Simulated assay, not measured.
Amino acid sequence: MQEVDAAVVLQQVVLLFSTQSILNNIEIIEEHDSEVLRIYCDENQIKQVFINILQNAVDAMPNGGIIKTQILCHDSEFIKFRFIDQGSGISAERIKSIGEPFYSSKEKGTGLGLMVSNKIVHEHGGSIHIESTVNEGTTVDVILPIYSSLLKRD
């Protein structure tokens, strides 16, 4: 675990996805609050979470579209990483099962990506929230503690 720049971590993952997004006719737009915050995390684990979310977004948009990534101040102690896609969306019934092991709507999916992502985020003192509308898209929020708020707790 180490202190890292939240924006840099997300930018590195978006860069990793740039080729795949171009091949799938997907544009990734990054929006960040002016104040870039730092988080205390296992950088590789948080990158894995972002990779899982972006991969799900790309898979949900076979005809292309836009994925928007945002970094927002959630409150004085947390930062919100938001991923918004224009994919096929998830029904209310299916959203209840997301994150369960081996539950997947993908032909070759294992259902382990979001389960592992949930575990990683919770181990970092955060949470994941998913909102979706069928045929409109999905918004995934990853909320993590800001580094300075962790210092106050000690």
Rank of each mutant, 00 (worst) to 15 (best):
D5E: 08
A7F: 12
A7H: 13
V8Q: 10
V8R: 06
V9C: 07
L10C: 05
Q11N: 14
Q12M: 13
V13S: 02
V14R: 07
V14N: 11
L15W: 06
L16N: 11
L16C: 10
L16A: 11
F17T: 06
S18E: 15
Q20G: 05
S21I: 06
I22M: 12
L23H: 09
N24A: 14
E31K: 15
E31A: 14
E31C: 14
E31I: 15
D33Y: 08
V36R: 12
V36I: 12
L37T: 06
Y40R: 05
C41R: 00
D42N: 14
D42K: 08
E43V: 06
N44C: 08
N44I: 11
N44K: 13
N44M: 10
Q45S: 05
I46E: 02
I46A: 04
K47I: 00
Q48N: 10
Q48W: 10
V49K: 00
V49R: 00
F50Y: 09
F50L: 10
F50N: 04
F50V: 05
N52Y: 12
I53A: 00
L54H: 01
L54R: 02
L54P: 01
Q55S: 12
A57P: 02
V58R: 00
D59Y: 14
D59N: 13
D59E: 13
M61C: 03
N63T: 08
G65Q: 02
I67T: 01
T69P: 10
Q70L: 09
Q70N: 09
L72M: 04
L72I: 14
C73G: 12
C73E: 15
H74P: 00
D75L: 00
S76F: 07
I79H: 00
I79S: 00
I79V: 11
F81E: 00
R82S: 14
D85Y: 03
Q86T: 08
Q86P: 01
G87H: 03
S88F: 13
G89D: 01
G89I: 01
G89Q: 01
S91I: 02
A92S: 12
A92L: 11
A92F: 13
E93R: 06
S97V: 04
S97K: 10
E100R: 11
E100N: 08
E100A: 10
P101L: 10
F102C: 05
S105E: 14
K106C: 12
E107G: 06
T110S: 13
G113S: 05
L114T: 05
M115I: 07
S117G: 09
N118D: 11
I120W: 03
V121N: 03
V121G: 02
H122Y: 15
H122S: 15
H124M: 09
G125C: 04
G126N: 05
S127K: 11
S127Q: 10
I128Q: 00
I130R: 06
E131V: 08
E131H: 12
S132I: 04
T133F: 12
T133E: 11
T133K: 15
V134A: 04
V134Q: 07
N135M: 11
E136N: 08
E136T: 07
T138E: 06
D141T: 07
V142C: 02
I143A: 03
L144P: 00
I146L: 04
L150V: 04
L151T: 08
L151K: 13
R153D: 11
D154I: 15
D154H: 14
